[in-house]
Structure formats: structure tokens, C-alpha cells
């Protein structure tokens, strides 16, 4: 009955009928859409206070326009350069050091045939992913504590003076990046392991017949098989270089390391919600700038990836 009517109608009528036919699906979607508008798109509308001098008395639409004044203030601020530099250094250091390690781990795990060994290694390397950021940073403080930490005990055993890495601004970036790798390398390897399991076994069999050893098979079969996924993930993380693992940076900050540990997101938070004079407009302007540059960056790296390798996110 329905399908009979379906065939007869055309054009706009057909479209309307298709919408009406699925009205219950739109009812299902209503609540999620309402949520999306309120909690995700209303803030985008509110971001216009970046161009105003927001005061609670006047509200979002009532506050006076100030053009780009808030942005100019950030560009001229002495904080501008260090905050941008810290963000980029921390991001690219994480990216460059953290990108190849899960791939190597996956390639290596993929070679293991002993199931017990393989699943134990997987289980153990995934585990730190499930530890919360607060606990990870707490562990860092304890592990590297100059008096009660593991490094202190070790130094004592070796009759050396214990290092105080957590208090050393020069060590901040290394600790941040390598503890991140420690925490995530196992879990990040999952995707690569999944891709490796889809590599056609016939390729490996043919390579074995041709006399290729394991290293050569990794080099000529496994790695090319991983490339598309690796490219997509690289694009995604390059597009997010302005974000950094902000929650962790904030926890690791101390008055000593602030010179290298203040990043865009922590600065936005402090200006907006922590400083004695809360400056919503200024904070929003910095955040908006970061958001727009980040979006442009994501589009740019994606286009570059598409042109260079035929792999892209969209």
C-alpha cells in the first residue's frame, strides 16, 4: 500500500512524503538535537563576546562592540609569544615522539605467535590508559619525588644525589611527553593491530615463497598496509596541535615551570575563571582564535594529505 503510493509521487511531494513517512525517526532525533543546540551551538553563538566588552549587567547581546580589541590585546601581551611557543613545542614534541612508538609496538606484537605472551603484553601495556590524569600526575610527583620517590631510592642505592626533575623547568617537557607515551602507547597500538589483522595472508605467503624474511615482510607488507591509517591519525593529531593534553599540563604546572608550562588552554582558563578580575571577553577571544586557527589547520593538513597520499579524513 505504502510502496504503491511511493512510486506515484515525485519531486517535492516525494520528499515531503519521505519525511512524513519517517516522522518517528525525527522524534527520536529531537532530544539529541535539542542538546546539540543548547550545549554545543549556543556557546558558538555566545563566542561573539570575543568582539564585545562583556559585562554581566548587559548580557551577551547588550554588551558594547569593541571590534578586534581583545585580539589585539592578546597579540600585544607579553604572554602571547611564550604561550604560543609552549603550546607548539609541547604538541610537536608529543606528536613526533609519540607517533612512531605505537606503530613499532603493533608491528612487534603482530609477530608474536605465543598467545599467552601476546595477550599478557597487550593487557599490561593497555592498563595505564585507564588510569586517570590526576592519578598519573600524582604518580609522577611520587615516582620522581626528590626524597621519597623511586628515583630518589635508586640514587640512594647508587650513592648519587637524588635528582629533582619535577622541580626542574628544563625537565618539564620531557616528563610530560614521555609519561604520555608511557600511558598511551599500548592503547594507541590497538588500531594498528586491528589494521594488521586485515592484511591479506596471501601476501605474506607469497613473500615467504619468494624467500622474504620477517623483517622484509614487515618492511614491504605490514608497513605499507598501515600507512593509510597512520596518515589519517597523523592528520587528526596535526589538526589538534593547539589543544595539547590540557588537563595534564594544568596539573603539572608549578610556579617553577610556568615559563615552559603555560599553554593556550591553561591561559584561557586562568584569564577567564581564575584571575581576580574575570575577563570573559578576553579569554573567549583567545579561545576563539585558537579554535579558528585549529580548524583552518585541520582543513589544510587534510587537503595536503589528500594531495600527497590519497588518504584523508574526508
Amino acid at each position: 500500500m505504502l510502496s504503491f503510493r511511493w512510486n506515484r509521487v515525485t519531486g517535492a511531494g516525494k520528499l515531503w512524503l519521505r519525511i512524513r513517512r519517517n516522522w518517528q525517526l525525527y522524534v527520536l532525533l529531537a532530544l539529541p538535537l535539542l542538546w546539540l543546540v543548547v550545549f554545543r551551538y549556543a556557546p558558538m553563538y555566545g563566542a561573539q563576546i570575543a568582539f564585545r566588552q562583556y559585562s554581566p549587567a548587559f548580557g551577551i547581546e547588550g554588551s558594547p562592540w569593541v571590534g578586534l580589541a581583545n585580539f589585539e590585546r592578546f597579540f600585544n601581551s607579553p604572554k602571547f609569544e611564550p604561550v604560543i611557543v609552549n603550546t607548539l613545542v609541547l604538541s610537536f614534541y608529543s606528536l613526533i615522539a609519540g607517533f612512531p612508538i605505537p606503530i613499532i609496538l603493533a608491528l612487534s606484537l603482530n609477530q608474536v605467535k605465543a598467545r599467552m605472551f601476546r595477550s599478557s603484553v597487550q593487557m599490561i601495556t593497555y592498563a595505564p590508559h585507564f588510569i586517570s590524569t590526576v592519578v598519573i600526575v600524582g604518580m609522577l610527583f611520587q615516582f620522581l619525588h626528590p626524597r621519597v620517590g623511586f628515583t630518589a631510592s635508586l640514587a640512594q642505592l647508587l650513592e648519587q644525589s637524588p635528582p629533582n626533575w619535577m622541580g626542574d623547568p628544563g625537565a618539564f617537557r620531557h616528563i610530560f611527553v614521555w609519561s604520555g607515551i608511557w600511558q598511551e602507547m599500548g592503547f594507541s597500538a590497538i588500531i594498528y593491530l586491528a589494521v594488521l589483522s586485515t592484511v591479506d595472508p596471501a601476501l605474506h605467503e607469497a613473500a615467504v615463497v619468494d624467500g622474504a624474511n620477517r623483517l622484509q615482510r614487515i618492511r614491504y607488507i605490514d608497513i605499507p598496509g598501515l600507512m593509510p591509517t597512520a596518515m589519517v591519525l597523523l592528520v587528526l593529531s596535526t589538526g589538534r596541535v593547539l589543544e595539547v593534553a590540557f588537563e595534564k599540563v594544568y596539573l603539572m604546572q608549578s610556579p617553577l615551570n610556568l615559563g615552559v608550562a603555560e599553554v593556550i588552554n591553561t591561559y584561557v582558563y586562568k584569564v577567564g575563571l581564575l584571575s581576580p578580575i574575570l575577563d570573559f571577553s578576553y579569554s573567549t577571544a583567545i579561545g576563539l582564535l585558537k579554535g579558528i586557527v585549529g580548524l583552518l589547520l585541520l582543513i589544510a593538513v587534510n587537503n595536503a594529505a589528500r594531495r600527497l597520499t590519497d588518504n584523508s579524513v574526508w
Partner: peptide, 29 residues
């Protein structure tokens, strides 16, 4: 597949992964 507007709505969700109103505007909401 037969839902009209699904591409647009899906994109509206995915877009929030790439861009957000930011900390303060969300806080204000």
C-alpha cells in the same frame, strides 16, 4: 539511509569535534 537530512545533521555533530564555542561561552550556557 532513507532519512532526509541525515548528512547535514551528522555533520553538525561531527563539526563539534573540530570546533567549539570555547571554555567561557560553554560555562556561560
Amino acid at each position: 539511509q532513507d532519512l532526509i537530512g541525515r548528512r547535514f545533521i551528522t555533520f553538525a555533530f561531527i563539526f563539534t569535534m573540530m570546533f567549539s564555542g570555547g571554555l567561557i561561552p560553554t560555562y556561560m550556557v
